[in-house]
Write a protein that binds this DNA or RNA. Structure first.
Lengths: 155, 155
DNA sequence: ATAATTAAAGTCAATATTAGTCAAAGAATT
DNA sequence: AATTCTTTGACTAATATTGACTTTAATTAT
């Protein structure tokens, strides 16, 4: 069950720190050195695993004394969570992003585990695929927004 | 049992592991190499022998460190209602029929009120509309069947 | 002060590493 | 003979890794 790729390991490393801290401030090259990867891979990990959909905000500074800070975001209430998730969904929604969103809903106690799986079933690729991956992503976005909107007043 | 084909052997190999474990995580090319078949034959085995009807769910990831994970799930025994509903849905499903189905699920205590509204949101006309009412009914059928299949097991 | 240098992080496209799809060919069964 | 199941491989898609080049900020030199 070991995470096989290095990006997953880096993700796990950072999330372990974030389990005990509200934020983590790193020097990109240090983390890159720790895992023996090129520095830009840290950007890759952040861009794919620490997005706002995931519940993180990232800020950084270049130049001497530069850093990257990852912060767990605290949305004030459920409506804020839903609104920001709806905002983050544009016209299209990839499978990966949809999974992140559902995970965030669960982490924020907005849906139960059963509801997680019902939603994932509703946007399952095999269900909504129409032989056109662009349309699939559009359909996924539509369904997800519809569900999120429903959750805004169905509590 | 001497005249098994290779797909049967691969199936048996994986099911032997699953006899002792809840799940098995493989690298497609490794298993293909083990049995000296092309990698895509692993997909064939999975698609024909590890379906949800058989009580398995499969999830995978591509790219570096990619994998295929097969998980055993516990199918609920008392799911005649689900099976007959799935059978009854053909290729297409009207809005009206979908509402009847959701009502039936609720009446049989298979879903909660909240789940009713999530499902209705998922198949909402405005969400899945494609300017083509035939396609809309097809999409509605696909989504509903996907959800019903998900309700057939628990993890 | 201003310019030059240095020390970071960011971007983006190329390459690598997996798994998925699909249709054709071959084998087995009816 | 026809149908269904299995095997194969060419092509596609997703994800990860790498590195050259760019941008920004701080520090040092003029």
């Amino acid at each position: 069950m070991a995470d096989e790729n290095i990006s997953d390991l880096i993700e796990r490393y950072l999330k372990e720190i974030l389990a005990d801290n509200e934020q983590v401030k790193i020097r990109r090259s240090e983390i890159a050195g720790l895992f023996d990867v090129v520095p830009s891979q840290i950007n890759y990990v952040i861009n794919t695993r620490f997005t706002i959909q995931n519940g993180y905000i990232v800020e950084s500074k270049r130049g001497g004394g530069g850093y990257i800070r990852i912060e767990k975001v605290h949305l004030l209430d459920d409506i804020d969570v839903l609104n920001s998730l709806i905002d983050a969904i544009g016209n299209k929604l990839s499978k990966r992003d949809s999974e992140t969103i559902v995970q965030t809903l669960y982490n924020n106690d907005l849906i139960s585990r059963r509801e997680v799986s019902i939603i994932l079933a509703a946007i399952d690729k095999d269900a909504i695929d129409l032989n056109n991956s662009d349309l699939t992503d559009i359909m996924r976005a539509n369904i997800m927004v519809s569900i999120l909107n429903r959750l805004r007043y169905e509590r």
